[in-house]
Design a protein around this nucleic acid. Structure first.
Lengths: 239, 239
DNA sequence: AAGTGGTCTAGACCACTGA
DNA sequence: CAGTGGTCTAGACCACTTG
């Protein structure tokens, strides 16, 4: 710890970050060596390395063994987006849960080689009794791992999928499109067929590459936009 | 280094990660202590800490000082999305670059307190001579920092914004919506007014909180979906 | 050969949690 | 009070880059 109550490695990292954010050092500029910094800040090389590691993780610098540390080019095109159905704490009403043989598009998504049964879960997301979004999910129907309907009342997709394997054992691919509603969707969302919907399609994928879940959320304009952010949102305190 | 050619801290991290991904240890389970792990793996505490730091950064575990390390709940609702205009290397044609007083919506986005001039940059993204997307950008017009039109021919938004401040000194907020085209957009994209467009709005925001750029990309269905991914996409080799 | 970052060790002291 | 993680030090050896 130093006088300001924060660890030495943190204040060193903030120091250097400040210079980068203010533009005092710029992409492709080289930083002083670890040993030089250790002397300047009157600390050990290990502590300086910890500071530099923080800046590296943050995307501000990179190291080139044998040469030194350099300021990175900023990445302004990588965004972080948070998406889940409960995000806005709406009322969620189940439409129905059925076991069906899905249409070819869904069969393909679920990697069915032959026509097979799937669990189809339909939900309507509402606010003030107005429908906001329509949510359909499909899971392969395995007799081995039964899913009880009452479980579904509060379960969301990741949790359902997790019940079928370890919770860290899958990842999700998302696609976002703009679409017009089909008859069923227009009917459920009580909207006209010319209303543009924001559609999020998700595939839950196993470590072995198998698709263990497929879902589609169709959102009315009243649902609001999907929000994402990118880049370097620093604490003002640190600057 | 150990026999497998990878650093000790890395193979320890992989070992533990394997157990988490396979579900052998599960969320809220406690890990052995640093000292115990150091003895088990016949290495130092510093090396074990490095392994655990990797798993912590990856979202697999968290530490609770005084108690120990625990397996995290997986986050399956945080997505990473890459978006830039050049993403698919289409032809990009400039429509025009003008200095205008923008309409109120844009003025508000740019935090104009009084009507002020802005640079408006319109572009059409094409493929095989077919328009795919229409791109409008606004930048506050400062006499102090002139922007030469030829620069715009290959500049993208972040670079333009970076010219007005240090490259790391801003972040981006994005909103994704589905909209129907207005007359101008329908005309430029040569589409009917009932075609649903995927619209990405971006605000480039200064460290001081000021909006230094505002842009809107309207994409036809033929542009394809926006793609994002989430979660724990491990190297198969590590498992 | 001198300097760089990458890996690793064997200590030390601290604040905190829990029996 | 013993055990935990958090911080920090002063070394060591390695592979790599540069002159």
């Amino acid at each position: 710890m130093n006088s300001s109550g924060q660890p030495v490695y943190q204040s060193v990292a903030n120091d250097i970050k400040k210079m980068i954010v203010k533009g005092e050092i710029n992409p492709s500029d080289i930083l002083p060596s670890e040993n030089t910094l250790a002397q300047s800040y009157n600390t050990s090389r290990v502590t300086i390395r910890k500071s530099l590691r923080i800046l590296e993780q943050g995307g501000f610098i990179y190291s080139w063994p044998g040469k030194g540390y350099f300021v990175s080019e900023p990445e302004h095109d990588v965004f972080t987006l948070v998406f889940n159905e409960e995000g806005r704490a709406h009322d969620i009403a189940y439409k129905n849960v059925t076991v069906i043989i899905p249409d070819p598009e869904v069969q393909k998504a679920l990697n069915f080689t032959a026509p097979n049964k799937a669990i189809k879960i339909c939900r309507v997301i509402k606010q003030d009794k107005q429908p906001l979004a329509f949510d359909v999910k499909y899971l392969p129907y395995d007799k081995g791992t039964p899913i009880i309907e009452t479980e579904l009342n509060y379960a969301v997709f990741p949790e359902i999928a997790a019940a079928k394997s370890a919770p860290f054992a899958f990842y999700t691919k998302m696609e976002i499109t703009a679409e017009l509603p089909d008859d069923e969707t227009a009917n459920i969302l009580r909207c006209e067929k010319k209303v543009p919907l924001l559609v999020v399609t998700r595939r839950f994928i196993d470590q072995s590459g198998k698709c263990i879940g497929y879902g589609k959320v169709s959102m009315l304009p009243s649902y609001g936009p999907l929000k994402a952010h990118s880049g370097y949102h620093h604490d003002k305190s640190a600057l």
